[in-house]
């Protein structure tokens, strides 16, 4: 994890078939993301097993097909469409033949709404990973200040609450923030398709 900065993008490494670790890492990060999306979409545990495995394989194979040059195209948008399409396909096929299969709770939502939901989930996933990553670099106070700032508390309130000077709050906050931003940047260039 320490040489994170210098690592090649995961998806770029994916093009090298000898890089087994790339696939492993891909599965680690993407599987858990898919799990979270499934929970959000209400895909039940009993149905998610094969669907998830096949979706992962499909993503891994298709990720090279993502065309970054297309207008209005970004990686998370592409990712959302692929996931949504697979999940819906799975459900439609089963539903046609078996009414007993539980409905997707999101049946009523439009495609673009679902895409948006998956996109938001991806954003939160990447940024939450970044939070996990910086946790080890800062002490509890620093993270506390950062979190309070994120929920809109101003420096004066934070300083009072943690009984420190307003200046220290500014300084610590900007240190954590800039570190956090750079982690997000790195994670994005690592987990998303090289643009």
């Amino acid at each position: 994890m320490d040489n994170w900065n210098t690592r090649k993008s995961l998806l770029l490494r994916a093009s090298n078939p000898d890089d087994h670790e790339a696939f492993e890492e891909f599965v680690y990060y993407y599987k858990n993301f898919i799990n979270m999306v499934f929970t959000k979409l209400g895909v039940s545990e009993s149905q998610s097993g094969d669907l998830r495995q096949d979706l992962l394989l499909k993503l891994w194979k298709d990720i090279g097909k993502f065309d970054a040059d297309r207008k209005n195209s970004n990686f998370r948008g592409w990712l959302s469409v692929v996931i949504r399409h697979e999940v819906y396909h799975f459900y439609k096929k089963n539903k046609r033949e078996n009414e007993a299969l539980e409905n997707l709770p999101l049946e009523s939502k439009s495609e673009s709404e679902v895409d948006k939901l998956i996109e938001e989930e991806w954003k939160a996933y990447v940024t939450s990973l970044a939070v996990q990553k910086i946790k080890s670099h800062f002490d509890g106070n620093a993270m506390e200040i950062f979190k309070m700032t994120m929920v809109g508390k101003n420096a004066t309130d934070i300083a009072e609450k943690l009984s420190m000077t307003e200046n220290s709050v500014y300084v610590i906050r900007s240190r954590v923030k800039s570190r956090f931003q750079s982690e997000v940047r790195q994670l994005r260039s690592y987990l998303e398709y090289e643009q």
């Binding site: 939160a124 996933y125 990447v126 940024t127 994120m150």
Partner: peptide, 13 residues
């Protein structure tokens, strides 16, 4: 992996 997602920071994405 985070136990749950932290949506408060996703603006930084």
């Amino acid at each position: 992996l985070p136990d749950e997602l932290d949506y408060s920071v996703s603006d930084f994405y």
